[in-house]
Amino acid sequence: MNKNFNFCIVDDDDIYQFTIKKTIQALNYSKSIIAFSDGEEALHFMLDNLTNEEELPDIILLDINMPIMDGFQFMEEFIKIKPKLSKKITIYMASSSVDETDIKKAHEISEISDYIIKPIKQGKIKSIIEIFLKEKNTETK
């Protein structure tokens, strides 16, 4: 299997960043894992690399509660810059919140593929990658 995709973590929780990185690395699939502590940092990175396919993430795990720019605010901005991006980016909302309003709100945004409640098990990351690769194959065929 080719390691030709980038993982991106957007979360202000250091411990979570640490454990999820370990989990993804353990699967030994992805090319790189980049992490940002809030939505604004992630947005700036993407604005700097709009057409840089090498650096742009393929899959984002996006937290909701973050300082400066939270997950939903990031999504608003992301939708604005989406047409300028040279790459299709899959976004999962990953939060420890079991709040119905958060879940509902996330499902209403079509750019969000799914809502994952933390903690995220290894198997979940695996299925996310499998879905991603399957879609990628159908696109290239």
């Binding site: 454990t19 989990t23 903690p119």
Partner: peptide, 12 residues
């Protein structure tokens, strides 16, 4: 929930 889920992940 956030710290508890972190504890879970760390345990793993």
């Amino acid at each position: 929930r956030a710290p508890v889920s972190n504890l879970n992940s760390l345990l793993g």
